[in-house]
Design a protein around this nucleic acid. Structure first.
Lengths: 254, 254
DNA sequence: TATTGACCTTGACGCAGCGTAAAGGTTTAT
DNA sequence: ATAAACCTTTACGCTGCGTCAAGGTCAATA
């Protein structure tokens, strides 16, 4: 079976311009040129094109694709698995972006609330009060009143931007936690990244970070069912998983 | 507090070139120009820059960012929603790709079965026979024996790769059709994408594409209940919807 | 005071990966 | 014969800057 530019383009879902460009940069040359100067592709080129498009989807540059395809001795399966990993990463990124955009939309739709600094301050205060009601007493008992006050003060002192960033981090933790949980390996890369995000998140309200306090908080996430419930939103068992990840992260266990 | 390009750039973690570019395209103009022609930024611009970088992180184009920041919050909302749509599209694409990669991996891992060309050939032949039994007579009457033979020959000539791709496209059409149907707008973006996928799918077996033949086939999908039943798998009424989308796509109706 | 060296300016070219004409030739169906 | 669908090359345009080039300005130092 032989194909002209358009046929091949239609099959592959790309423009003829793209095919001409690929010819031009030498990444996909037609099998032959017919007497009228038309580009004629055959089976071999179809398969090469499929490979090209496959890598292109992954965001690999055409230059790199050429290298990959020319370095003929590549183990197909291994390469495929690596690509799958990359794709999953990309999707994680995308999910984060979508969540952020949706949150921004929600904020805007919420009206002037979020951009009105007074109302914003009010919103923060409400959150602090809620926190106080929910966890205040026990946390004060466990961590001392000073630390809690510090946290609340930090919240109050945040600009809207900082607050948004803080909240965004919280969402990112949930998303990453969910993915990390699926790996079932609290010492793994994703889980450790989650723990690191969690540290970042804490740093917004903690005056000073210490591994011990971090580990202690993680344990509390498991001991206190309200915290457990919060993190188990990601997946049942996620709070425990997060604790383990943090214990490893802080070097409490190896 | 006032800042020159370099100071502001350092604060925000961007290059001075970027700041000059933002000035050039009018997305972030300095508060004033001093007597030597230096750009001087003040607090207001710092905040605007933070906003810009925030949206940029989300992957919004600078043009759209300008709209978001300049226009009333309503227009900004619209832009954000559009951006969200784009992201969702991207994710749909990604998901399809991941499925494909996983299928490819599974096939490769599944061993020789799927790559056994004889079995594959037998499978294709069976499909052609089935097609023949199901639709052969009437299609021959309507479209002429030649076209049908051509189609069958094309099928026979496909490599396993092509066939897999062809099948994949078929699945993608069903998925997209279902989504498009929900919009209830055959002229909409998703429906038109479905029609385009359908064109791609046809191109695998059609020697030559023409809008008229495409439109004719679409009409047949509605006229022939066996085809209708097939596409109505997606949703009852989907065949009709697909016909309308294709009629618009081919310019038969506007 | 003259000279560095770190700033600042505008202008212009380059990059990837094509889209989109423009201006023309070819093939096929009717 | 004509139209419609194809094909060709050439060439400019788009984003979001990076990267010279060719200068002017400012503060510190020799």
């Amino acid at each position: 079976m032989e194909y002209t530019v358009q046929k091949l383009g239609q099959m592959a879902g790309i423009s003829t311009r793209t095919l001409r460009y690929y010819d031009e940069i030498g990444i996909l040359k037609p099998a032959r040129i017919n007497s009228s100067g038309y580009r004629i592709y055959s089976q071999e080129e179809v398969e090469r094109l499929q490979q090209i498009l496959f890598y292109r989807e992954l965001g690999v540059s055409l230059d790199d694709i050429r290298d990959i395809l020319n370095a003929s001795s590549f183990d197909g399966l291994k390469a495929l698995n690596e690509h799958r990993e990359k794709l999953l990463n990309k999707r994680r990124q995308l999910d984060l972006l979508i969540i952020n955009v949706e949150r921004t939309i929600a904020e805007k739709e919420g009206g002037i609330n979020m951009t009105d600094s007074e109302k914003f301050a009010g919103f923060k205060r409400k959150m602090i009060d809620d926190n106080e009601k929910k966890y205040g007493k026990e946390i004060r008992e466990k961590y001392g009143a000073e630390k809690v006050n510090q946290s609340n003060q930090a919240l109050e002192g945040m600009t809207q931007q900082q607050y948004a960033e803080w909240e965004r981090l919280g969402v990112e933790i949930m998303v990453t936690l969910k993915e990390a949980f699926a790996t079932n390996n609290p010492g793994g890369e994703l889980a450790q990244k989650t723990a690191d995000l969690h540290r970042q998140w804490l740093s917004f309200t903690w005056d000073r970070y210490s591994k011990e306090a971090h580990a202690g908080l993680a344990q509390m996430y498991v001991d206190d069912e309200r915290f457990t419930a919060y993190y188990d939103q990601a997946q049942p068992g996620a709070a425990e998983f997060l604790r383990d990840a943090i214990l490893i992260y802080t070097g409490q266990i190896q």
